[in-house]
């Protein structure tokens, strides 16, 4: 299973979202150093390191931003501890306006 699919599967199981987008943004970070690794080791263009998730789920109703992010982080704890280096989270409850007015 690709990392995109793993993330999708885990978030679906955890939150039964109404809407879920999993975007691999690794190519945007290609070439930036993986700090703590040898100096010449950089993120590859086809990597599975940087993700953005847009998720709308009833489970987030009444939760603060921090609580929502923590819940998503907890669902993806294994991935964050291994290959996923950065995870941007846009979590909304149904009916809340999005950043782009959607």
């Amino acid at each position: 299973m690709s990392m995109d699919e793993t993330i999708r599967t885990k978030l679906t199981a955890a939150f039964s979202p109404e809407h879920l987008e999993v975007l691999n943004e690794s190519s945007l970070h290609a070439g930036h150093h993986h700090t703590g690794r040898p100096h010449n080791e950089r993120f590859p263009r086809d990597g599975e390191t940087h993700y953005r998730v847009r998720i709308v789920a009833g489970a987030f109703t009444g939760m603060s931003r921090l609580e929502r992010h923590r819940a998503v982080n907890a669902a993806l704890a294994d991935e964050l501890a291994s290959t996923v280096h950065a995870l941007a989270v846009e979590a909304r409850a149904p009916g809340e306006p999005g950043r782009r007015g959607t």
């Binding site: 921090l66 992010h69 982080n73 501890a81 950065a86 995870l87 941007a88």
Partner: peptide, 20 residues
Amino acid sequence: NWPTIPQLYVKGEFVGGCDI
């Protein structure tokens, strides 16, 4: 108990990471 950096603290309390 937050997996990424940066992390912002105000008056000793964790506020959030970059997105938040």
